[in-house]
Amino acid sequence: MLYVLALSTMLSAFWLVNSGHYTPLILSFMVVSVIFVAYLCHRMDVVDGESQPLNLTFSIPGYWLWLIKEVVVANIDVARRVWLGPKSISPMVINIKASQKTDLGMVIYANSITLTPGTVTLDLQGNRLKVHALTKEAAAGLITGEMDRRVSRVEG
């Protein structure tokens, strides 16, 4: 029930942000639509802690700031290598372990890896991640496990 409420709140916010028309008619459409979609999503069984990550809402902004910094740094590195040419890359495949407890945590970790240019998650099986890295340095950076620890901390 909590998750349905969270979903409805999110849907309403999404609608209000998009709409820009706050007449009673449109607002009543909003209510009808939100209820309808929430009902459908309930039927589809997609409303749960995985799609509505309530418990990690508070710790996530700090992680995002750190992630943005990482993404910028990695971007500059990969961009440099694009201009330097194919000789400057040294692709690696690495296997690492994800220490998160839930699927959601592991998905956040895997997606953070993919989001950072230079590393792409190839596969996620159990808690083993297979990652393709563009360079040895990127691979080494991932193996230190800093991102892993930070995601685990977000998961709380």
């Binding site: 040294s90 692709p91 690696m92 495949v93 690495i94 296997n95 690492i96 372990k97 393709h132 040895k136 691979a139 080494a140 193996i143 496990g145």
Partner: peptide
């Protein structure tokens, strides 16, 4: 993938 090597955290 063509790689120069693989690494394993374990």
């Amino acid at each position: 993938p063509q790689v120069v090597g693989t690494m394993d955290s374990e």
